[in-house]
Design a protein around this nucleic acid. Sequence first.
RNA 1: GGUCGUAUGGCGCAGCGGUAGCGCACUUCCUUGACAUGGAAGGGGUCACUGGUUCGAUCCCAGUUACGACCACCA
Length: 867
Amino acid sequence: MTDMHFLAPANPPEKVSLEGLEDKWAKNWDDAGVFAFDRTADKANIYSIDTPPPTVSGSLHVGHVFSYTHTDVVARFQRMCGKEVYYPMGWDDNGLPTERRVQNYFGVRCDPTLPYTENFVPPFEGGDNKSSKAADQLPISRRNFIELCEKLTAEDEKQFEALWRRLGVSVDWKQTYQTISPDAVAVSQKAFLNNLARGEAYQSMAPTLWDVTFRTAVAQAELEDREQPSAYHRLGFNGPDGKIFIETTRPELLPACVALVAHPDDERYQPLFGKTVRTPLFDVEVPVVAHRLASQEKGSGIAMICTFGDVTDVIWWRELDLPNRAIIGWDGRLISEAPEAITSEKGKEVFAELAGKTTFSAKQRIVELLQESGDMVGEPKPITHPVKFFEKGDKPLEIVSTRQWYIRNGGRDESLRDELIAKGKNLAFHPDFMRVRYENWVNGLTGDWLISRQRFFGVPIPVWYALDADGNPDYDRVLTPSHDLLPVDPSSQTPAGYTEDQRGKANGFIGEVDIMDTWATSSLTPQLAGGWIADPEKFAKVFPFDLRPQGQDIIRTWLFSTLLRSHQEHGELPWTNAAISGWILDPDRKKMSKSKGNVVVPAEPIDNHGADAVRYWAASARLGTDAAFDEGMMKIGRRLAIKLLNASKFALSFEPSDKNAKVTEAIDQSLLLNLAEVVNEATKAFQSYDHTKALEVAEQFFWNFTDNYLELVKERAYGHGEYTSAEQSSAALALRKALHTMLRLFAPFLPFATDEVWAWWQNTGSIHRAAWPTAEELLEGLDGSNIALLELSKEALFGLRKAKSDAQVSMKANVESATLVSPATVLTELRKLEADFKAVGKIETLNFEEGEEFAVKDVVLAPAEEV
RNA sequence: GGUCGUAUGGCGCAGCGGUAGCGCACUUCCUUGACAUGGAAGGGGUCACUGGUUCGAUCCCAGUUACGACCACCA
């Protein structure tokens, strides 16, 4: 191998600086297509990344910068290893966050009954993110609403892209997708139809967790428990032998009571099992039943079962085969019709009074009535207890019986669950223990995945239903489109064999109005990013993906659902590796979140410290580990980047005087021998997704290089004094070789500074397409026995510096004489350093002496006047 | 209540079966011709607690405590 490319003259600028490097190199990379994916590459040679599509519904924060840096570092490493990296970017512009944001930003809300308005101008633009009252929002058609969604998300996407470019995320910007695009809708619908055809998707009329604000069903994965104030109300039921007292936090559900329940082993209530009691106020006869989920300790040990107060009610209702007397409507208010079971005049009267009230008002009123009638004992007893909320909602969830679509996820099928657990074992989680979160979630599933949402902005469920002779939908006759027609909107398109005028008519059809859960589309990011429908040839090359980077909080949603869909659709894992980033905490180690108001806008640290510095901070945190927002760390990163520029400029200022330069000197060989080990360590670390280790070893070597080696050999590299041309050339060449390798080791972390230096002296294009360094390229022609010398030289320098520091003189102070003491074997090595050491230490006479321990002694400084 | 993770100098983190390291901060010094956005030399920790294994534990095992996360619990 020729060393010619090391010898090329370098042209660093007069004064080096980090300023402006981001813009300069971001543009260069874009112009030269450095990160463009070459689709002609062999599948085996492609490294594909299933990028998290950021939710384009609000502002970015440093958490994005953090995790995207982790991914980018891997992408750049793989690219330098010769892989053709498929690194697309997606935008998640579906779902409630976008819908909400559009409502507030433009002051509108969607009313699907309204007609489309041409050239619609919203009431205003740029509203804040606080929720405004629905009454203040202008109702507009669904199509107008979606247009506004698209308008707003397009603006957001531009901002996101600009930030990623500044940060140096090496995405191929020609490879992007949006979850709202027609292609994404088609992918989502096709996958759903395949699920349907295979029997994995089905519809069911069932009690469903329901958000009364958004008026939509929500899925298990979207639940969140919140501690809420509540109160126990002690109510007396009329039993055969007197009053039975129960305690309830939901007295307003008394008209929906279908039974009382106690634990089978509870001796207090065993005599009542099989008998009936009558409800207070409504005088409805209900059975007393036994069930293992009833707790003897809670309340009075006997509870009323209502349709439906909580999920336990649903279990009891289902397992005990009880009647349904649901009284909560879609709007969260009590329905107008009393359940048929209420037959007494008084009961009907009471219900009529409650009808139409919110649960809150109904509760207040029924408590008054119960107290008046004497059926309630004492005052409500305040407690706090956890209540299920939709994670984005602000009212407790109700349970409402509705017809919904589900996808089988193993929640009701042990064998599928086992298959999914087994699949998870083949996925390499980084860090490995994150797999536990996945397994916990799979094992804790309580039902199938509810994917239908009663919203307007999203992917329509692509089916119609036939209407019978009376004009009622026959939900068993699901009409589906053929795949080549996708995407479809069943509310404006017709199923095959029908015409539009048959919509809603007897023997005609109706379109499904629901849309799919946002995860139903997000779970298909490998298919979206890979071009499953649009570009099957590409898809075959990039799928399964090599890497899924994501946050730990969405293992149960995004990771799980993606794995599930891939298992169903392709029978294999969607990726081989999952890299899980930790949280960003504020400097007080609290999790950053909008509600706490401690979110840092990501452009700020980049402005203040530079992209390389911010990347350094992010890359210093290991996968799966939370990290504090730490500007101190960014300063260190900035210092490293600046040092890299300066040290490079200095090292490159030395040119080998010998055209056939060889690294001949022992200390120069030692440098490269040590660097070869660093290369091996860094490579190994990267291969096991331990980027912090790779950075650490490179950084440690680099500082030793500048602080010690460079100091030690610079006199020789200058060619000062008695050095021969070969000796001078050895140093100069070693410096260049080391730099050539170190720059590449740093390239994934500090892409701007490293490409800047690379461009000073290499004509080979971007460093980010240069080959990842190998130990072999460094080791050629070296004598391995010299390896320890670098460390020895460091020790010797420390000793000398300490002597000068103790004497409080400049490091440049002349020394008349000094003695190096060391064991005999080491002494032989140290003698090889004599000339360099004398030169750097300005030592007149250097003595060597044999001794037990290494030391620098007898340092005699020259009189100050002679300096 | 279950599971997982974390616990190392003031702060942020490495580490490892053989009596502790790095960076920041701190102290002192050096305005050296790559870099004052710099450099050098220092001080500072009984590695959360209690047991066990071992010749020897910060590192392995068991338990405890604290913190974080996820899940479960909603009468």
